[in-house]
């Protein structure tokens, strides 16, 4: 559904943010986009959405270049930035004005999500709501559009703890086999039960973009007392609970994907990770 080929982008000529970046994303997944601060997660999503234009390479969504921002694409793509625009309209007025632009918009779903967020019957203007409430309204709207591609930049940022739980519920209600979600986040713990595929961005390139099963097929995540006897160890973290390790899964053992551990392992072993997961 989404394809980036040899994408290069930079705010200045000297220091490109991306160099010959390749990425392919398929529907039916909730991707977690991970990377260090300032690595370009937001920029990557904006390039996919057609909000920013790459300097070179092709970015295609539904087979069409995204920079064109064609109505067909926009009707099936929603970009939810970290800062949401809160118009001076009530929820009703907002839906009234903007829902018709999205042919698959569902009023029932909007009401269901608002109910989950405890915003039913709210007649306040969106601009007058608290930051968290504004976000909840726009998240509900975004999910109710039933677009095929939803890009969310730090969706749980600014939500209180009960709201984060509501967000997870609402996402579970909205996910299906065709929709593609990309959630960029620093707060992995908020979303790790929802994410079923990982995109790792570092140093201007994609280290990996795979479903969790593929990752746990190639990598073994284990907590041990000593690293003796571990084959092809990639990364080890000494903690009070034990030594958290990531190694090549030579014996095809089953283990649970630890996203934060994966992230640390990948950053310190870029070459090996790229080797293991190279599809391009």
């Amino acid at each position: 559904m989404i394809q980036l080929k040899d994408v290069t982008f930079g705010y200045t000529k000297i220091a490109p943010v991306f160099k010959d970046l390749n990425l392919e994303l398929a529907g039916g997944h909730i991707y977690g986009l991970l990377g260090k601060n300032g690595v370009g997660k937001t920029t990557l999503m904006k390039i996919i959405a057609g909000l920013r234009f790459a300097d070179s390479g092709t970015t295609e969504v539904f087979g069409e270049p995204s920079y064109k921002r064609s109505p067909d694409m926009l009707q099936d793509l929603y970009y939810l930035g970290e800062e949401v625009y809160a118009p001076q309209l009530t929820i009703q007025q907002y839906v009234d004005a903007f829902a018709p632009f999205y042919p698959h918009f569902s009023r029932e779903q909007m009401d269901a999500y608002l109910e989950q967020f405890e915003l039913t019957g709210c007649t306040q203007r969106i601009s007058a709501m608290s930051h968290g409430q504004k976000k909840k309204v726009i998240i509900s709207f975004a999910l109710a559009t039933n677009v095929k591609v939803l890009l969310m930049d730090e969706p749980t940022n600014g939500l209180d703890i009960p709201s984060k739980s509501m967000f997870r519920k609402v996402m579970a209600m909205a996910a299906d086999e065709e929709r593609l979600f990309v959630l960029s986040t620093h707060q992995v713990r908020d979303l790790h039960s929802l994410i079923d595929s990982i995109i790792l961005l570092d140093g201007g390139e994609i280290l990996l973009a795979e479903p969790n099963e593929v990752i746990t097929d190639k990598l073994l995540f284990k907590v041990v007392d000593s690293t003796e006897g571990l084959q092809n160890l990639l990364y080890a973290e000494d903690t009070l609970r034990g030594i958290y390790t990531v190694s090549e899964n030579v014996n095809h053992e089953e283990s649970k994907l630890d996203i934060e551990l994966l992230f640390n392992a990948a950053i310190s072993n870029k070459k090996k990770i790229k080797e293991l997961f190279s599809n391009y």
């Binding site: 039916g28 519920k169 579970a172 209600m173 996910a175 299906d176 039960s193 929802l194």
Partner: peptide, 8 residues
């Protein structure tokens, strides 16, 4: 939804 996990 109840468990807050990916339906997959």
């Amino acid at each position: 939804t109840a468990l807050e996990v990916n339906p997959n």
